[in-house]
Nucleic acid binder design. Structure first.
Lengths: 149, 149
DNA sequence: GGTAAGCCTGTACCTGAGTACCGGATGCAA
DNA sequence: TTGCATCCGGTACTCAGGTACAGGCTTACC
């Protein structure tokens, strides 16, 4: 027995072996047991944890957020309402929806630019027919929510 | 006369003065004339160029891409079809559309997770009812285009 | 001509998520 | 027991798009 070596875990989860140490530093993976010589020996469930991390990242969570999510799961869930995955997923969903709306505005602008046949940005900027909103263009995420939280 | 000083240009365009030097290094802004003492003196149109840069960034172009776009505009347009703003805007539009589709998949997954009431990622990963696709989750942008270019 | 604000160059730092390299130690199989 | 793959730690680097700081010079106004 003993456990899986870092290379095995990395291969099984499809990540770079260095990433395991990185996640350990970041608090996403618990420090595993060691062999007598100091090599890491992981329990099999580490592979699951890694898959979970990758899935959460895919859903838009940062590593810090993933670390909190994992922690929230470990410390008995349901303590206070913000801590759970459900609430955070809801918040992240809102974020993603805002981002989608933002990109849709951008797509609309690009479509208009293509249609209008703009072919030189600097020249265009002075023309009245150019659909690109040079002056009023907002930084990403600046709109749609009334107050900055 | 002489031109605008860097602080004036930066203020007029709403950017950090350091950013002007940064853009100059990156090839987005031409090297301006200097005063006898070595201070930069910008023509008024630089403010327009900065606004254009910011607008293009907002539309999803990287600074390298913006530099190319500006260059393409300067070197007489219409040479070959890829070079123009129109073609690039079309390509960028496709990129943005892919990103939107990707985020919509993510939003759908988050909605499903909220609805299913998942509350602990690691536990969830072993449950059959959990809607989060841990195993099959793809890296961003991996789908929808058949071959990796 | 004095003084303060502004500008100069060069270098270092920031975020986020890793990846790469180094010299040395360990694990495992033949 | 030898040899080689793997792993160790620590450090440095990557990408993108800036931002900050230090130490010194210039400009502008009174």
């Amino acid at each position: 027995m003993s456990g899986l070596r870092s290379g095995q875990v990395a291969a099984a989860a499809g990540v770079n072996p260095q990433t395991l140490r990185y996640y350990e530093r970041r608090g996403l993976l618990a420090e595993p047991d060691r062999s007598l010589g100091g090599h890491r020996l992981y329990p099999a469930e580490t592979v699951t944890v890694l898959r979970v991390i990758k899935a959460a990242q895919r859903l838009g969570f940062t590593l810090d957020e993933v670390a909190e999510l994992l922690d929230a799961g470990r410390h008995r869930h349901g303590r206070h309402p913000d801590a759970g995955l459900r609430a955070r997923a809801q918040a992240k969903l809102t974020e993603v929806e805002v981002k989608i709306a933002d990109l849709q505005v951008i797509a609309g602008t690009l479509r208009a630019a293509v249609k209008a046949g703009c072919d030189d940005l600097v020249e265009c900027a002075d023309q009245p027919y150019c659909p690109i909103p040079f002056a009023t263009i907002a930084p990403p995420g600046a709109c749609s929510t009334g107050s900055p939280a």
